[in-house]
Each structure stands twice: as structure tokens, then as C-alpha cells.
């Protein structure tokens, strides 16, 4: 099937456009637009000419704070376009409540201005490729080609500690960065496994079926599998379950709630998901309601994005 590969890139100003020009120059069909007074007319003209971008890239300098209605307006002109927001880690974090309202499900947070030469475009190029080609995020996309992917199909909850030890042992190195990566990797694996064991299984009325920490057998139809890969720099990991009980809107709601009000965090749901998101450099969730949930992402040994700040995410369905 032929894909519509047109990308619409909306920039706040010329400096914003310049920061991404090197990368976008290599893409075949990019329409660059500056958000000046003629923005509405320009978008309407594109729509009138039946140009329907598959992807619209919006900078965090514009949305949501400066132009909160921008996504709604873009979707009025181009109902089927995917929205990808790129924010700078050094800038004030964007409001996730607005993301929730507009169902914006793709965010990349760059530690500094995107530098192609420094390999800083990696999450961006991956996101553009996946969104244009309608591909899902998978852990092999995060690590060097040929890196072994370890897979564990779970049958008992007690297998958690053995899997975590295997992951820690795979991160070989004595530097403080290796030690930190082992700690973070172990915590992420713990949260992912606990979520699959105790968060995902729900009864018909949506209630949790198991209490956290209880010993339980995993039934084959639950299809719970944990995978990880480490290429010496990047640790990629993902957890799959056959419940599909996590809604895409609920994911954003959990991230927003836990980001906004730490004092109420004791009572907020989704703290485990929030921790996974903040400890990964880039986080992906794929939900097929009633069939499957996949939670994953990657973390670099030399990660520059502290967990205390907002991190990128991709939330997809189907």
C-alpha cells in the first residue's frame, strides 16, 4: 500500500526551523511553516489543495502553552494526521492535561538542541519513521543491529528476581554509569513485571484480580513475556501481557496525575507506570484493548535526561 509520507513541520520562528533543518532536509516531503499571523491561512490553503500530511511536527515552544488550540486547529484541517511534539528538556515542561484533552500521544524530549552530528536525532528519526510507516515501536529499534534480545515467558511470579539478576548480570562494567544503569534497569524490570502480574489482570467489572506481592501462577493465555537487550550503551526492555486492560487515555491520565500532584501521589493510581516513564529515556506503550498491552522503551548509560523532568513517550493502539 502506498503511504502518504508528507510531513508538516510547524516552527515557532526561524531559529526553531534552523535547529531541525539539517535533519528535515533529508526527508522527501516536508512542508515547513512558521507560526506567524498567516498560519491559519497557510494550513487552510494546504487543506484546500488536498495536501494531507501523515505527520505534523510541533515544537514545545508553541504547544501547548503558547498556542493551546494549535493541535485542534491542525486536526480541523488534517483530521488523520499524527501529532508529534518535540520539547526541550531545559524548557518548562508542557502540560500533560492539554495532551490528554487533545489526545496527543507522541512526545520527544531533547536534552538540548537536536544535533544530527552528535546522534541527537535518534529518537526523532525513529519516531518519524515509525509514524510515517505506521510501524510499532520495538526494542530491537533501540539497540545496535545484531544485539541479542533475551526473552522470558513467565509461568510464576517468583521468577521476577531471577530475571532481574539476569538483566543486572548482562550490564557488564564497573563505572558509576554502569552501576546506575544496573540499578535503574532492575527497578524498571521490577515495575514492568509487577504491572503484568498484578496490574494487568482484571475481572469483567474492571477490578484487579490479584493483590500485589502474592504468589501466583501465570496462565498460558496471559501470554506474559519480558524482553531486554543491551548493546553496551543502550538498555532496551519491554513487557507484554495478553490482557490489554490498559487504555491509551488512561496511560496519559496516570502520567499527568502523578506529574502534577506529588503530595497526592499516595492515592494516585499508576505510580508504577509513572516510574517506568520517568526512568526510561523514551517510553512506548501499545494497547490492543482486551488482547494485549506492551510497555517498553530504552535507557542510555550516558542518559542526560534526569528522571525528575518530563520524558518522551509514544502511546499507540491496535
Amino acid at each position: 500500500m502506498e503511504r502518504n509520507a508528507t510531513i508538516l513541520a510547524i516552527f515557532a520562528d526561524s531559529a526553531d526551523a534552523e535547529a531541525m533543518s539539517n535533519y528535515l532536509a533529508e526527508l522527501p516531503e516536508v512542508i515547513s511553516v512558521t507560526a506567524d499571523r498567516s498560519l491559519a491561512t497557510t494550513l487552510e490553503q494546504l487543506a484546500f489543495n488536498r495536501i494531507e500530511p501523515a505527520l505534523t511536527i510541533i515544537p514545545g515552544t508553541l504547544y501547548p502553552e503558547s498556542m493551546p488550540l494549535l493541535v485542534r486547529y491542525v486536526r480541523c484541517c488534517f483530521p488523520n494526521t499524527e501529532i508529534l511534539v518535540i520539547a526541550q528538556a531545559s524548557a518548562p515542561p508542557p502540560s500533560l492535561e492539554r495532551f490528554m484533552a487533545d489526545q496527543v500521544r507522541h512526545l520527544i524530549v531533547e536534552p538540548q538542541q537536536i544535533s544530527v552530528a552528535a546522534g541527537g536525532d535518534f529518537p526523532l528519526s525513529l519516531a518519524i519513521g515509525n509514524l510515517i510507516e505506521k510501524r510499532q515501536w520495538t526494542i530491537d529499534q533501540y539497540v545496535k543491529e545484531g544485539t541479542e534480545i533475551r526473552e522470558f515467558k513467565l509461568t510464576f511470579s517468583e521468577e521476577k528476581e531471577k530475571i532481574i539478576r539476569t538483566l543486572e548480570d548482562a550490564i557488564v562494567g564497573d563505572s558509576p554509569e554502569h552501576e546506575m544503569l544496573r540499578h535503574k534497569g532492575a527497578l524498571l524490570a521490577d515495575e514492568m513485571l509487577e504491572n503484568a502480574f498484578y496490574g494487568a489482570p482484571r475481572s469483567d467489572d474492571g477490578m484487579k484480580m490479584f493483590r500485589k506481592g502474592e504468589r501466583r501462577q501465570i496462565l498460558p493465555q496471559e501470554n506474559i513475556a519480558f524482553r531486554f537487550a543491551f548493546d553496551g550503551e543502550t538498555l532496551a526492555m519491554e513487557m507484554q501481557d495478553g490482557w490489554g486492560s490498559l487504555g491509551a487515555d488512561l496511560v496519559l491520565e496516570y502520567l499527568a496525575k502523578n506529574s502534577a500532584n506529588m503530595e497526592a501521589a499516595d492515592d494516585a493510581g499508576g505510580r508504577g507506570l509513572f516510574i517506568i516513564w520517568r526512568f526510561l529515556d523514551q517510553f512506548h506503550v501499545r494497547v490492543a484493548p482486551g488482547k494485549e498491552t506492551l510497555i517498553g522503551g530504552h535507557l542510555r548509560k550516558s542518559s542526560q535526561i534526569p528522571p525528575e523532568t518530563l520524558h518522551g513517550f509514544h502511546i499507540t493502539t491496535g
Partner: peptide, 15 residues
């Protein structure tokens, strides 16, 4: 430790 310090900062323990 550093990892748990990050965790405490982002979950309100230090409040």
C-alpha cells in the same frame, strides 16, 4: 543511593 534519591524526588517522599 542515587537511584532511590531520584525516586524520592519524583514521588514526593522529600515533601
Amino acid at each position: 543511593n542515587p537511584t532511590n534519591t531520584m525516586l524520592f524526588r519524583m514521588t514526593g517522599i522529600f515533601l
